[in-house]
Design a protein around this nucleic acid. Structure first.
Lengths: 284, 284
DNA sequence: CCAAAAGGAGAATAAAAATTCTAGAAAAAA
DNA sequence: TTTTTTCTAGAATTTTTATTCTCCTTTTGG
């Protein structure tokens, strides 16, 4: 009897299409037991795997037992795993036809679409362009030199204001996760001077600034570099006030759209630099 | 002996990609025996059936015996039917073929250059992937709805911690330049509660958080949303604690490299959203 | 803190699938 | 036409895969 009830309460409406299934999972995933919720998350995050994999391969990737997949499928109301999998396969089947179209709209610049979606496409395009250019413009030796210089530093100070601030903020996060000591000079309360006061010759400074160069960045960089602190600069022109102060510098030219410059390339460089430093530290 | 020869002449080069297989089939289909040619035609005409079906179901649709499929696969040089089917599945797995090619050329260069520049390429690759996916996954209506909601707000509060912080910091910059009143809840001195205290029903909150969701973000968002402040969330999963609180939310799935997730897509969305808001404000 | 219920892991089982084998049919060569 | 070779269908086999079951663990309710 109790078994019957258990089954009965779970049955009812096994959605036959992917979107329905997806929203059902989103609804119920909080009320599901641990492992089943785990499967639900995996299913939503990796629908392709769900479509192609075998119960065993999917189970492994989702870190559960194959039997859990079956229980999962039955709990939501399907007959078994295979029945559930059919939904995911159907999704790929149905999606296929318009696939060619999508590709076309992707490669051709979308002149036909207008207004808001155009914005997203535009910024995406600018980002991709920036990243491609970055790959072509930065060479090994440059990155290597900068990374070596920074890896030798005791503490890495990070300075960037206005548009460049998000990048230094991110580097502070990344370097922290990588176990590299760094200090973010965020200039809160205009305390930049104090924040950078202890940077010495054994430390290093990463300064990031784009046109129009924020005065705070320039002044703090000058003051710090004058004390003999090694400087790595990321900027957008060889004529930037930072280049003459820098021991190593990168020119990053970003594409723009709607009067806003992408930051993709600069972020990319920041990440690569961070990881390079960590690798060198580990004796790489 | 004759068996050996038969096998030998057929072996050689089983193509590992769909296009190669396709052209091979078109070449050889005239010289193949009747039933095998029949299978070849079917395979080219119904590649998705080949990907999904079982040997039995495909055999039925192609009007041959299941064993013929195995013979067919072996005749072209594959180990068996399953081996052949993998080609068809791979084709559906990696959509965006032209994009994959580009990436391939990208990763080829990885091999020539070594070490550090590989990092740069890797991050660039992850960024491009993320941006492509974003374009594919976000639709006009979604962006429009969120932008409308935010455009109607008096003040826009921005909340994001840890990895998401750079994005909110950038949005604060962008919205400022666009003449949209916004407040960045940076939680300096753990003053987040105070910073968000004055957000009311006529304002709006943009919350950004990725796994593992920073507790500060979640708590502040909950508290703020509970006061009836409209919420737009940007997160990485439908199961994020933010989605249930949000009036509109975006799922942004970023590619990663070297254990660091790209932020490109999220930045791109942030920029598009910012400009959309400004456009709507101007009566767009 | 204990008891009862629900959930989960892993082995055991059942089902389904691919593959191989064999006998016979069709085609090609003599 | 006969003989030989190649090809094919369908049954038999083996492998893979899904599912069920049992025992143990965790959680929940009193």
């Amino acid at each position: 009897m109790s078994k019957m009830e258990t089954v009965a309460e779970d049955l009812g409406d096994p959605p036959r299409d992917f979107v329905g299934l997806r929203s059902l999972l989103m609804e119920r995933h909080q009320t599901l037991p641990k492992r089943l919720a785990q499967v639900a998350r995996f299913a939503v995050a990796h629908p392709d795997e769900m479509a192609f994999g075998t119960a065993a391969s999917i189970a492994e990737q989702a870190s559960v037992q194959p039997s859990t997949l079956v229980r999962f499928a039955q709990t939501i109301g399907y007959q078994g795993f295979s029945d559930l999998q059919e939904i995911f396969r159907a999704r790929l089947r149905d999606r296929w036809p318009d696939y060619e179209e999508r590709l076309e709209s992707l490669s051709h610049q979308d002149r036909d679409r207008e207004g808001l979606p155009g914005l997203l496409d535009g910024f995406a395009q600018a980002g991709v362009t920036s990243l491609m250019r970055l790959r072509d413009s930065i060479d090994a030796a440059q990155l290597d030199k900068a990374a070596a210089l920074l890896a030798a530093a005791d503490t890495i100070y990070l300075l960037g204001q206005r548009r460049a601030f998000p990048i230094t903020a991110y580097m502070a996060y990344a370097l922290g996760k990588l176990g590299v000591k760094s200090i973010l000079i965020d200039n809160v309360g205009t305390l930049g001077q104090e924040q950078s006061a202890f940077a010495g010759k054994k430390d290093a400074l990463i300064s990031i600034s784009f046109t129009p160069y924020a005065p705070a960045t320039i002044e703090l960089t000058k003051a710090t570099a004058a004390r003999g602190v090694p400087l790595v600069a990321i900027t957008d022109s060889p004529f930037s006030p930072l280049t003459e102060l820098a021991d190593a510098w990168f020119e990053v030219v970003e594409a723009d759209f709607a009067a806003f410059r992408s930051l993709s390339a600069c972020f990319c460089l920041a990440m690569a630099l961070s990881v390079s430093i960590a690798e060198k530290r580990r004796g790489g």
